[in-house]
Design a protein around this nucleic acid. Structure first.
Length: 302
DNA sequence: ATCCAGGAGGGCC
DNA sequence: GGCCCTCATGGA
């Protein structure tokens, strides 16, 4: 990876195993807007980033070297050797080959804990475009204005102090539906400190999972997403409707419970479960693996 | 129009 | 433990 600074921008060249579009569009994050092909505006904590990838060069507009080193390099997980991760995964399971080759440039982002927690509570029973819409709407209403890219306005996601001022009724008015009390409970827990990021980070996997699931509206899937995408638990393997279908198609050949898939993944992919999950999820979803192939009951006609 | 969405809680057995 | 229903909203 070559890094240089020019005209107040940071340029990256020869970045192995990284593709901006794949990393943002793979479903792990929601707080970004596509400006053009390969060009995005995204928000991380109180920072707005305008970033573009073209012909193998990634341009971070109006970013100084300190912010690049301390914020964006960490956020995009650029110090990690994904070549090694991929070859280890392929050694464990060559069925991953197509997914890894197609989604070669996905990196697991290190996102903000609080925003990730609220975002994935919102995510339940929703499609990705609508999750993005709600995150943007909450940010505009309760966050701080960070700037424009073109005519697109960007706002930070409100911090826990700000969210704690928001009433349950206001959360309903944001069209969060049945998730409103869940968000309310999560905010309350983080505000009071019963859910604390630093404490979560030093727990083991099952301890962290159990602690997060004390929040109303946080089950196994949401807890695993929060752990994987914001707390650095890279063994976490969120099992959602897509991963369920994909694993049934690729590994089981029949309907299988989420619990069984969870156990299988822990055993099969081990400490690299999170990476495997993301390659499988993105590839399987893009190619609609298992989508129109639900197993039929005995005797049921086509 | 009916079904489904990166689920989870609650009741029932 | 498993099974079924419901939750609010929007998009296909």
């Amino acid at each position: 990876m070559k890094i240089y600074s020019k005209d107040n921008n940071i340029y990256l060249e020869e970045v192995e195993d990284f593709n901006l579009t794949q990393t943002l569009e793979c479903g792990q994050c929601f707080h970004f807007v596509k400006i053009n092909d390969g060009e995005y505006g995204l928000v991380h904590r109180d920072k707005l980033l305008h970033v573009k990838e073209e012909r193998g060069t990634v341009i971070f507009y109006d970013v100084n070297e300190d912010d690049f080193e301390n914020i964006w390099k960490v956020y995009f997980d650029l110090d990690r050797d994904y070549g090694s991760i991929k070859s280890q995964l392929l050694k464990r399971d060559d069925k991953l080959k197509a997914s890894i080759e197609a989604m070669y440039g996905v990196r697991l982002l290190n996102q903000d804990f609080f925003e990730t927690l609220i975002s994935f509570i919102i995510s339940q029973n929703k499609q990705i475009p609508h999750i993005k819409q709600l995150v943007a709407q909450i940010s505009k209403k309760y966050g701080s204005y960070l700037g424009n890219i073109g005519d697109e306005e960007f706002y930070s996601f409100p911090d826990v102090q700000k969210m704690h001022e928001v009433t349950l009724e206001e959360l309903y008015e944001c069209k969060t539906g049945f998730r409103a009390p869940y968000i309310y409970d999560a905010v309350d827990n983080v505000y009071k400190g019963t859910i604390n990021e630093k404490e979560l980070r030093i727990l083991d996997d099952s301890g962290c999972l159990e602690r997060l699931m004390l929040i109303k509206g946080v089950g196994t899937k949401v807890a695993n997403c929060v752990m994987l995408f914001s707390l650095g638990f890279r063994a976490s393997f969120p099992v959602d409707v897509w991963i369920k279908r994909i694993c049934e198609e690729m590994y089981f050949g029949k309907e299988t419970s989420k619990e069984e898939i969870q156990k299988f993944a822990a055993d099969w992919f081990g400490d690299l479960g999170g990476y495997a999950q993301q390659y499988l999820f993105y590839y399987g979803k893009e190619n609609k693996i298992g989508k129109n192939n639900k197993s039929k009951k005995n005797g049921e006609k086509d």
